[in-house]
Amino acid sequence: MSNERKNKKGHLKSRTKGYPDAEYFNRLVLENQEKVYTLFRRMVANHEDADDLTQETFIKVYKNLAKFRRDSSIYTWIYRIAINTGINYLRRKRARQFVGLDSIDLHAEDRGPADLRGTSSLLNQAIRNLSSRQQLVIILRSYQGLSFKEIARLMDSTENAAKVNYSHALKRLRTIFNKMGVNYESL
């Protein structure tokens, strides 16, 4: 592909001096937007926030595209940028508004089965109470179906650390659901 010409250092070369090639960049966006958006949509409560984070990710891709070295696939590189963007977002959000266990709707079960019909809403609420790394590991492992090896590579971590994060996350979810009085058979 002519758009993927590389210079002597192995960096991607752009047709427009100083700026990445627009056609190539747009193709990257279209090919990867679904995975990136899906990741964020599980992390945040609404489309607008997921869209903001997706745009932020691709702007970072655009700014750094010329520096991308083919040590990994472009998909892995983009996904890694998305994950870092997500971690930063969760940290910022946590710093602004600490959500403790006590703030979770502990009396949901008192209002009857109707409130428990939305299992995914209940789960999302509980997942957002995890630490940023635990949230991401749960999303990548349980929802995106990635292996711990892939998760470790994406999060610049070790496979063992990813497993420990996952294990702690699942146990913490149990604690949260116990506090909510959730009947596990309803899940």
């Binding site: 937007q33 679904e34 899906t38 489309h47 869209d51 691709f58 995914s120 349980s142 929802y143 659901f177």
Partner: peptide, 26 residues
């Protein structure tokens, strides 16, 4: 039970999202 509840489900993405994203980024 918790693990079962977290089964991968498809996230709904608006059909025109990809094109709109390209325009917004541009």
């Amino acid at each position: 039970a918790i693990n079962r509840a977290m089964k991968p489900d498809k996230v709904e993405i608006p059909a025109s999202y990809g094109a709109e994203l390209v325009v917004a980024l541009q």
